[in-house]
Simulated assay, not measured.
Amino acid sequence: MTRPPRNVLRTPPAFPESALPAFIQKLERPEALVKAQALTFLMFEKRDLGATETFLTDFGMRCVSRTDSQLLARGTGTQPCLLMVRKGQRPRYLGAAFTVNSENDLARVEATTNARRLPPDSIPGGGAGVELIDPAGNLLWLVTGQQPVDPQPLRDPLHVLTNGPGTLRRVNATVRPPLEPAAVVKLGHVVLQTIDFPRMARWYMRHLGLIPTDVQYLEDGSPNLCFFRLDLGNTPSDHHAFVLAGGIEEKYEHSAYEVLDLDALGQGHNVLRANGHRHMWGIGRHVLGSQLFDYWFDPDGMEFEHYTDGDVFTADHETHYVPLEMSGIWAWGDDVPASMGVKRNLTTLFRVARLLRLGLLSAARLKLLGRAMTQARPWL
C-alpha cells in the first residue's frame, strides 16, 4: 500500500473578518428583514409514513400526531414539532421552518415579498406564519406564537464539559483540537491470554497484589477473564492495569495507552490513518472499564490501544462478576474485528488437538469458549 503524503495533515488557517488576506473576498451582508430566533422544524415528503415513524422512534424522536397524510415528531424539549412529514409520491426534502419574534415580523415579510399567509391549523403548536419559496424551490416557513409543550425526561450529560440542550458550559469559545498525534499520557494496561487461567491469575495476584475488579465467567460459572486493578488503598486506581484471559495459547493480546480526551483520540486516529498505519478497531466505548478506545496494529501486527475516560476505583470497591460474551467487550462502535477472536485455520486446529491430547484443555471447556466468543451483534 502506498503511504499517503504527509502534507495531507494540515489544519486550515482561520482568519477574522477584520484581518482578511487580499485573496479572500468578504461576504457582504444585506439589511435583514427579520431575525430568526430558532430553527423550528423541517418538512419532508415520504411514501411510507409507518416506516418513517419506526425509524424516527428508533432514532430518538416521538410521534405526536399521525394521520393518513401527515406525521409530526418531536424531541424531548419544549418545541412541539421537529419534523413534519407528509405522505407523497417520492421521498424528498420540502423545506424548513424558523421562529421569528412577532406578528410584526410576519407583516414586514408579507409587505416586502411574495410570502403566502399560512392557515393557522397548518402550523404544529399553533400560532401564525408565512410561507416563502427559496430560489431552489424549497419551502421556508416563518412562524411565531407556537405554544411550547412540556419537556420530556432527559438524562444528564455524561461528560461534564459538554455543551448540551439547556446546559451551556462553553460560551464565546470554540473547540479546535489540534491535528497532531495523540500524546500518550501513560501506559494503562496490558492484556495476556493464557492456557491455565486459575494458575496464572493466582500467580499475578500473589506477586503484584492485584485486586479483581470485574471477573467474566463461562456458561458453567468458571472464571475465564479478569480485569485486575492495583491496590492503592484510598487513592483511585484505574479499573484495570492487567487483564488475563483464558484461551488456547500463551499470548500477548494488546497494551493500552491513555490519551488526554476524546478529541485527542479522534485526531490521533486521523494522523495514524493518514500516515498509512493499519487500523484495527474503534472508535468506540468499552463496557467494563468504560474507556473510549481506538485500536491499531504496529508494523509487526501487534495490537496497541489508545484510550481515554476510563473508570477508577478505590481498594474498597467490590469485585463484580459478569458473563463472558462478545457483547460485553464494547458498548458502541464498529463490530468487534475477527482478529480479536480465534483464527479458524490449521494452526489453531493443531494447537487445540495438542492441548486436548495433553489434558490441558477439555472438550467441554472448548465448547464453552466457542460459545462465549460467537458473534453477539449480527446486525453490525
Rank of each mutant, 00 (worst) to 15 (best):
N345G: 02
R365A: 01
M43F: 10
P323F: 02
P148N: 02
Q291A: 11
L292I: 13
E318A: 13
E253Y: 07
V185D: 14
E318R: 13
N101H: 09
R278P: 00
G50V: 09
L292E: 10
G310H: 05
T112F: 10
R344P: 01
K35E: 12
A73L: 12
Y252E: 06
P153W: 03
Q147G: 06
F293W: 05
A353K: 08
W332G: 03
Q70P: 03
L71V: 09
G166H: 06
N172V: 11
V130W: 00
P4Q: 01
D58P: 02
L192P: 03
L380M: 13
E253R: 08
A128D: 07
N7R: 15
A315W: 08
A201Q: 13
L139D: 09
T40E: 14
M340H: 02
V271E: 01
M280T: 10
R273I: 05
G266V: 13
N345M: 04
A111G: 11
N224F: 15
L272H: 08
G95H: 08
V322W: 09
L272Y: 08
R92G: 07
A136P: 00
F41Q: 10
F15T: 02
A201C: 09
G289T: 06
F23L: 13
P212K: 01
G60N: 10
P16Y: 02
A264L: 06
P236Q: 01
P91G: 15
E53T: 13
D316Q: 06
A97W: 03
G127P: 01
N114R: 15
A183Y: 13
L244G: 06
D68V: 09
G370V: 02
V171E: 14
A128C: 07
F44C: 00
M302G: 03
P223H: 06
K343R: 11
H286N: 07
L324I: 05
G166T: 05
E250C: 08
V322P: 00
Q89T: 15
H189I: 04
L179K: 09
L20Y: 11
R6G: 12
T308N: 02
P80L: 08
G127E: 01
L262I: 15
F41E: 04
D309N: 14
P337I: 03
P299H: 05
G166A: 07
G247A: 11
K46Y: 04
P148I: 05
P124Y: 03
E305S: 01
P124G: 07
V85F: 06
D335Y: 08
P5G: 11
A241W: 09
P323S: 04
P337D: 03
A96M: 10
L94K: 14
D309S: 15
H277M: 12
L71D: 02
W332E: 11
G328N: 09
L349I: 08
G333A: 00
L208H: 05
K26F: 11
R6F: 12
T308G: 01
T67I: 05
L368C: 04
L179I: 14
R202F: 15
L230P: 03
A364P: 00
V175S: 08
L168W: 15
G233T: 00
T40V: 14
L56P: 04
S237Q: 03
R273S: 12
R357E: 12
N345T: 01
P157E: 11
V109S: 04
L361V: 02
I123Q: 02
P236I: 00
C63R: 14
R278C: 04
Y252S: 08
L9R: 13
A274W: 10
Q152E: 12
P178Y: 06
L56F: 12
P181D: 12
L82S: 14
T348E: 04
